[in-house]
Simulated assay, not measured.
Amino acid sequence: MFNLTLIGIGTGNPDHVTMQARRAIAAADLILIPHKGDEKSDLADLRTSIVAEVCPDGAPRIALFDLPVRDPSIPYIDRVNRWHDKIAAIWADTIAAHTNGDGANVALLVWGDPSLYDSTLRIAARLTPAPTIKVIPGITAIQALTASHAITLNGLANAVTVTTGRRIRDHGWPEGAETVVVMLDGECSFTTLDDADQIDIWWGAFLGMENELIAAGRLDQVADQIIATRAQGRADHGWIMDIYLMRRRA
């Protein structure tokens, strides 16, 4: 039996790592870090640099692992579930190779917060035997976005809908929503909305990092700018993490 700590580390800025997270990193015997290929190697490098900053003496041990590729030929939910099964198996093999399992403190550094559109907890639930799981909360991309734009998350006395680009593309604007936060949108799904002149958007990528990109304005006026900026950011870095908030005009 081992202990598994999922540590939220914010959106890439080492200053986002809380004191609680730093203590959890320092207490780990082993930290698992996913490696997503050469073009995304700086994602692993950022995690490694955070560990090095927190633990300048060289502990804990770091184990890199390769993420499997999703099968695009099968339906989305089944595709993701199979992908999670494969990742859990890789975790188990990596942990067994680097610890004796009994009482070891294993940790993963999670972008943002482990509770918000992240699958680390779902993957951890697949491990057998089940480890003791602890979660350290982290600054979310939503918090980083509203801070970068100096805006409130919600309108006065109104609710907020958090959703994905896939759902915006397939189902349109959520019924009854005033403010919508969209995550995991690789296709700029705001372009599918037919009343863009009635919507304001606040967009951001690499939030909290030195290469942060942001744009805001009426959707019909800034959509092309966001698309171009996003494409350039992805070309420059080989990857991009972005998020946006939209609000209907009163």
Rank of each mutant, 00 (worst) to 15 (best):
V106L: 03
R230Q: 15
A28P: 01
I123W: 02
E187G: 04
Q221M: 08
V80W: 09
W202F: 14
R169C: 08
A89H: 04
A144E: 13
A215C: 15
T191Q: 12
A159T: 07
P131R: 04
V17N: 01
V80S: 11
I199C: 06
A159S: 15
I133R: 10
I199H: 04
W203I: 05
A231M: 07
N81H: 14
N158G: 06
D45H: 13
R61Y: 07
R234N: 11
G12N: 04
R70E: 05
V106S: 01
I87R: 02
I31P: 01
L153A: 06
H84F: 08
Y76F: 12
I240P: 01
E178Y: 06
F2I: 14
H149P: 04
A144Q: 08
T146W: 07
A52R: 15
A124V: 10
Q198N: 09
H16V: 04
I87N: 01
D242V: 06
A205S: 07
G101V: 08
L153V: 07
L145M: 01
W83T: 06
P72M: 06
A141I: 08
D29K: 05
I139T: 12
D170N: 11
I199S: 04
D66T: 15
T140Y: 00
L127E: 10
P129S: 14
R126K: 15
V51Y: 02
I9L: 05
I139K: 01
P68Y: 00
R166C: 00
R23A: 09
T120M: 07
A27Q: 14
G155P: 02
D102L: 13
I62D: 04
R248D: 03
D185L: 04
Y244H: 10
P68V: 00
Q221V: 09
L109C: 10
A250M: 08
I151F: 04
P14H: 11
R248G: 03
A177F: 03
H149W: 12
L6N: 00
I136Y: 00
I201D: 01
M1W: 10
Q225P: 05
I77S: 05
H35R: 12
F65E: 08
S73A: 10
V222T: 05
N81P: 08
V69S: 12
G204E: 05
T132I: 13
R122C: 09
A216K: 09
N100V: 06
H35E: 15
V181C: 02
P129M: 15
A196T: 09
A250D: 11
A27G: 07
D42V: 12
A216T: 08
R247I: 04
I199T: 04
I87A: 02
G37P: 09
N105D: 13
G238Q: 11
L30P: 02
N100P: 03
A157K: 05
N100G: 15
A97I: 09
T164A: 03
A96I: 07
L64W: 04
T164D: 05
D220P: 01
A159E: 15
A28S: 14
A147R: 13
D57Q: 13
D85L: 01
A63P: 06
G12V: 05
L6F: 00
T11R: 00
T163Y: 02
W203C: 07
A215K: 10
R249L: 10
Q232M: 10
L153Q: 03
H16D: 12
T152A: 15
H237R: 15
L109Y: 01
T5W: 00
A24V: 09
T11I: 08
P129V: 13
F2V: 13
I77R: 15
L245I: 13
D170K: 08
T229H: 03
Q20T: 12
